[in-house]
Write a protein that binds this DNA or RNA. Structure first.
Length: 425
DNA sequence: GGAAGCTACTCAACTGTCAT
DNA sequence: ATGACAGTTGAGTAGCTTCC
């Protein structure tokens, strides 16, 4: 049955819980802690985080530059009263597009807006003519979120750098491996064929290198480098050296590691060619057991990229978490992967009022993924008013995790069941 | 003649939908 | 992703009518 109280067409800019929350956040901003120039630089950098696109960034920069620099001083009020028409003219887009982009920026929490009855933007001044408030585009939320957004930009940049480095190193390793195969004369056709097949297999598993995850690339690189070293008759690396390259864990985690005990797996003597080949087969078999396991783990990793990773302790799917915590949707969060959910943790904590310290401890104790689930559960319970102190609730969960008594899956499935009951009734 | 009230119109903003 | 269009809102304003 249709709700007769609902207007068929909502009039004016919609006020969602998230927008209301953003307004509250804007009011808590400490003006004077960030300059206009800093915000302009940040606004230009935000495109790399995926929060906004280029046009939205352009509009945001235009808004920041519209407010006088003094508006960001301690006694200032960074509120913009420019019309959509003027903004559209300045950024070379239509008025309708500007209106929509402002809504998007409002949703993303990069601006807030206070509309007047007739949508006109105007300042409210005190007796001395100073602007104390106004109906317009409020930039205070940028000041409030500056540290968080700046950190996000830095993080994304460093991840990109690491990903680029992994890509370059993988391409180099693949080139080296193929070159080593082409120039290696001292091995039999059979051995070269087998190693060549393994190089091809690694290359196929990685697929388009530019689209592969940096973790997958690093593992593939390590495998290729190992194959080259075997072709070059280099002695196996010491455990310490491997550890410094963050490789040890790769072998330990598959649980099938066999340490290479033969220092020179490929004998060179012509007289002993036959037996050496046999030895090579054996040593390749033995020493490559761990590497073969590594290839298997590469395949597994590839599957994990497309499918949600299961929690080590509780088999919870991302969809279960989303069903369990409709508050995520309420706040405009729609994680498509575990990484998305982990990235949303600072924002969720902000919405729930969970302190930085509580969040850090949860991540340290549970790991990013499980902590993200715990924070989502806390946010949902806070939204349902089941808990009055979300920070305390999260700390209690962290303590239970430390004691090995945290069963997040139960909470997730319980909340999901409650949500589906509420939907059906 | 001036004040008050009514009406029609303009303006600036929003959203939904459709086409490109 | 973007622009265009239709339909909506309420404040502001101009012009007209009515009343004192």
């Amino acid at each position: 049955m249709r709700d007769t109280h609902m207007h068929p067409r909502p009039i004016g800019r919609r006020i969602t819980p998230q927008r209301a929350q953003n307004r509250r956040l804007a009011q808590s901003a400490e003006i004077g802690t960030v300059t206009r120039a800093q915000l302009a630089v940040l606004a230009q950098s935000l495109t790399c985080t995926g929060l906004i696109n280029g046009t939205e960034s352009h509009l945001l920069v235009a808004l920041i530059n519209t407010a006088p620099a003094e508006a960001f001083d301690k006694s200032g009020r960074p509120i913009v009263f420019k019309s959509n028409q003027q903004l559209a003219f300045e950024i070379g887009r239509s008025v309708g597009r500007v209106s929509r982009m402002l809504s998007r920026l409002f949703d993303t929490g990069l601006i807030t807006m206070q509309d007047s009855g007739n949508y006109k933007r105007y300042p409210i001044r005190n007796g001395e003519g100073e602007i104390t408030d106004g109906c317009g585009i409020d930039l205070r939320i940028l000041v409030a979120r500056y540290a968080e957004l700046d950190e996000l930009v830095r993080q994304v940049r460093s991840e990109k750098k690491a990903a680029d480095a992994a890509l370059r190193r993988y391409r180099g390793a693949l080139r080296n491996a193929r070159h080593a195969l082409a120039t290696a004369a001292e091995h039999s056709e059979y051995i070269l064929g087998r190693i060549g097949a393994r190089v091809d297999r690694v290359s196929n598993l990685v697929g388009v290198a530019g689209k592969a995850s940096s973790r997958l690339l690093r593992r593939a690189t390590a495998l290729l480098e190992w194959l080259v070293e075997r072709l070059m008759h280099l002695p196996p690396r010491s455990a310490e050296a491997q550890e410094t390259e963050n490789m040890t864990c790769l072998r330990v985690e598959n649980g099938m590691h066999r340490q290479i005990t033969t220092p020179h797996p490929f004998a060179a003597s012509n007289e002993e060619r036959r037996s050496a080949d046999a030895e090579q087969h054996r040593s390749l078999k033995a020493s490559s057991a761990s590497k073969w396991a590594l290839e298997k783990s590469l395949r597994r990793r590839r599957r994990e990229i497309n499918q949600p990773r299961h929690l080590p302790q509780a088999m919870v799917a991302l969809q279960d978490v989303i069903r369990a915590a409709p508050a995520l949707k309420t706040y405009g969060l729609a994680p498509k992967s575990w990484a998305d959910l982990a990235r949303a943790v600072p924002l969720m904590c902000r919405f729930a009022g969970i302190s930085e310290d509580a969040r850090r401890r949860a991540v340290e104790q549970m790991g990013e993924q499980q902590a993200a689930v715990a924070v989502a559960v806390t946010l949902e319970k806070y939204e349902r008013q089941d808990v009055s102190s979300p920070g305390g609730y999260l700390r209690a969960m962290t303590d239970r995790a430390r004691a090995g008594e945290l069963y997040l899956a139960r909470s997730v499935f319980g909340l999901a069941a409650r949500s589906s009951m509420e939907v059906t009734h």
